[in-house]
Design a protein around this nucleic acid. Structure first.
Lengths: 194, 194
DNA sequence: GTCTATACCTGGATAGAC
DNA sequence: GTCTATCCAGGTATAGAC
């Protein structure tokens, strides 16, 4: 049964995504993946070569999803500030943290070039995309000429990632919201008064 | 020999600090701590009850150190912007990440109230301290009245934490520097032109 | 494709000798 | 205080039957 096989792969990938998000790579065991997915030992090793292989599939999917979600906000109508605000303020599982960002703290992920690549590329893409929006805003007069698109974009992505860290430390989503408010407050001051 | 005992405790704590920084709590085993410190099994369990006890001592020390280093920069002479810049730009082991911030990704640390407390308190202190400086700057006319000290302070701490994440993802300290530049660029726009 | 058995290593700790 | 021996669970995988 081909469809059944696909479902099994699917369940394994989804269970791995959840566990990587909750416990990281080092903290996630094949046994836990089997328990969470309801897939047996032999079955898991039939569909994937082992933990790294499965993790790669899970990480790629999380990266694709992050990108797609972000693009949805960036593609909205509105001014650059409005679109960036929509992205920063979009609903998030703040206390769970960023499924991609948390992997940067996983030594075994960072040590494996295959696992690392999607992480690196995701942040490169996101920073670039934001820098492009900010450059657009500067070009069309929404921002003053002094704004540095690349540095500002990097700071905005960092605020998100750091916001997750602060929220988890405080065990409260409010810290994330304050960080975003602070960043948008500063950005608002860059908008040219008409 | 009392001095010898203190040295042993000391070596254990320092080895644990390093390993927690490099590999996190889940990724650090008693065996690795013994190897790194050169202290034997029996000796380790004589001085500490177990891994959580040792981790607590290590985390507390790292938290104290972070606080002391930050305070050094905050206490410098100069304007508020100068002191905050000095803090943000101070030399750092960027690619190793933040020894406290990385613990927020460690499920076993977050699940243990004792281990978690120093993490939470460190960020609370840091954010508060920065908010105080920003409020001081607003009061003395360095910033305009529109600046929100608490939100801005939270964003600045988040930029640091997120800067570490981006630097590790890119395997390059430059991303950290750009995030800080972006944040300071935005903050500079809040300074009242004399 | 999936199951069970098996294997070997490490994690995390205790016990008791020195 | 430190050492070695020992313990049991779990991590990560392979082998072979069904």
């Amino acid at each position: 049964m081909y469809a059944r096989g696909v479902e099994t792969r699917e369940r394994l990938i989804e269970a791995t995504r959840e566990l990587l998000w909750e416990r990281g790579y080092v903290g996630t065991s094949p046994k836990a993946i089997q328990a969470r997915s309801g897939v047996g030992q032999g079955s898991m090793y039939h569909h994937f070569q082992g933990k790294p292989d499965l993790a790669l599939a899970a990480i790629r999917r999380s990266a694709d999803e992050l990108r797609a979600r972000a693009e949805t906000e960036f593609a909205r109508p509105g001014t650059v500030v409005e679109r960036i605000s929509a992205f920063l303020r979009r609903e998030r599982d703040v206390l769970k943290g960023c499924p991609i960002g948390r992997l940067t703290q996983d030594p075994d992920v960072m040590a494996d070039p295959d696992l690392r690549r999607p992480v690196k590329e995701t942040f490169a893409w996101l920073t670039d995309r934001l820098a492009g929006l900010l450059a657009e805003g500067r070009a069309n007069g929404e921002f003053g000429a002094a704004l540095d698109p690349v540095a500002t974009a990097t700071a905005l992505v960092a605020v998100l990632q750091g916001g997750y860290v602060l929220a988890r430390a405080a065990d409260s989503a409010e810290a994330f919201g304050r960080a975003v408010d602070g960043a948008l407050g500063l950005l608002a001051a860059e908008v040219r008064r008409p």
